[in-house]
Amino acid sequence: MSAWSFYISTLVVYFAVDLMSGISLNLQYGYAGVVNLAYIIFQAVGAYVAAATALGPSTGPASFQHYIFGANLPFPVPLLLAGLAGGALSAVVGVFSLRRMRRDYQGAVLLIVTLIALQVVTADVGLFNGSNGLTGVPQPLASGLGLGPLAYQWTYAAWALVLCAGLYLVVRRLSRSAWGRALRAMRDQEDAATAIGLNITVLRLQVFVIGGVIAGLSGGVLVEYIGAWSPGAWGYAESFVIFTAIFVGGLGNYRGVVLGVMLVPIIFLELPRFLPQVGYPGLMDSLEWVVIGLVWMACLLFRPRGLLPERRLVANRDTSDLGALTGRPRLARVLGRTLP
């Protein structure tokens, strides 16, 4: 029974991490229409920073693993630094990739950035120990809490869920604010949004950086749980799983994100473990990705708006509450304030 309990608690942690990613990508793509195909590098940088700042100082090139930012910081600090790193990298990448250009170009550029980041980190052993990656990351407060392994597992799972719920509340508040309405205005009618005085470039950069902070945090939570991180964990295909999840679930609403994350990364990638192994070892892993690609393509063909599409938002009848106005209100009210 305890093996099952262990396994389920692991799934809960993965679910929380994937849900954070889903929330982040849904904010970026579902609400703002910014396609972040480089998502995984922001998660990766968070994981690396959290790992390096918890592992202690690097002991030099001759040692077992070699990395930058080595420090031995107490528990919540590495996680916060992970969020900061995700945000900072997003700002850098965003500044040159979010220029006004065709969205297919933009997607391709971000994908290329992922591939290049992967090559640089793999090749440059001095950064984060190259292709071997970092390992032996201590679990936060493992000794301080004085819990058994199984109790610790569940405590960590609960902590991940709490963090995820907190992020959800913050992001939901953001997406329902005037700023969130501005994001949707930008997504649906970019020219009209510009015309009413929204600064598209700044909005895009803001949503990119906020998503990047969440990505970094999710990477930190993940690496403090599994204890190791290497380029194998963040291939370009990994961004895809989360994208497939929010596409399948439905964009622009949170029920869709939860459903998608339940379906794709959890059920879909975990179920094959219980199927009988076919062929040589590793065949199942390859086929999993083939199926992810096919699900993605089928979803784009048959349900391009997902299983739970964004509801068509209409203005609240109770006009005394202008803050509740959503959908296609008069342009001035999109901003939640009157225009000069």
């Binding site: 297919d104 997607g107 391709a108 895809f240 990705w289 083939v290 690609g293 993605w296 393509m297 784009l300």
Partner: peptide, 11 residues
């Protein structure tokens, strides 16, 4: 279409 080709590339 670019997103479709991305999925296709994965396949």
């Amino acid at each position: 279409m670019m997103m479709v080709t991305l999925g296709l590339g994965l396949v």
